[in-house]
Amino acid sequence: MQAIQETQPGRPADASATRLEVKDLNAYYGKHLAVKGVNMQFEPGAITALIGPSGCGKSTLLRCLNRMHEVIPHAHVEGEVLLDGQNLYEPGVDPTDTRRRIGMVFQRPNPFPTMTIMDNVLAGVRLAGKPPGDATLEEISEKSLRRAALWDEVKDKLHKAGTSLSGGQQQRLCIARALAVDPEVLLMDEPASALDPISTVKIEELMRELRGAYTIIIVTHNMQQAARCSDYTGFMLAGEAATGELVEFDTTSKMFTTPKEKRTEDYITGRFG
């Protein structure tokens, strides 16, 4: 593993300046050490993919980044996650505030079933108590839906149930919901794995459009997806006692053409996993 400092060429000028860094991170489920000794630095405004076989701790690592791991009973984290230099696991740091700064999209679309499309988008904003900036709720709703490439499809049915949309649309609605609170980082845990190929393409296009404005970290089983969408890739693997470790972390182009580690090459070329 190594720190990645160089800037991706061609990134938009308004790229997010938020720097996310992981230092000596261990994640536990009870006494079981699920992820061990991870050190990473996520490039602001870039898309970083975490790949690896099932059970290697990719999702666990992702959930550690916005303190969602600790929501699981008996789960805890050691080490540091630094957001602009502040350790998110320091005493006194509000986890709910952390989760507003670091948004998350899950594997399966999970719009709130009792809410309309518009209310779904605004759920996080209402939770926060006040809209970010001077924008009205309607403006935030439209802006978020446009960013999520969903506005044209739902603008005439904003007051229909969020669950009335197709699976792909629901996932983009969940992305719009995450974007509405104006997060600095967006975590995506296999966001397209439950979707059909057309919806998957739309999610990938959306990620590319959001690149630069947000630091995006995506967990994926799909290596083609990682190669297509991400600027950086981290490869994780479970070792002894099913403990996941970060084997290699580099630019996606290097990872998929000249990986340093034999295990990375074996995984990418399909020799295991």
Partner: peptide
């Protein structure tokens, strides 16, 4: 589980999740 997770990830407190969602 999914709804609870989504709400928590948006920054909701556990009490809010139970009472409002």
């Amino acid at each position: 589980a999914a709804i609870r997770e989504a709400t928590t990830a948006l920054g909701a407190s556990p009490m809010y999740v139970v009472v409002r969602v």
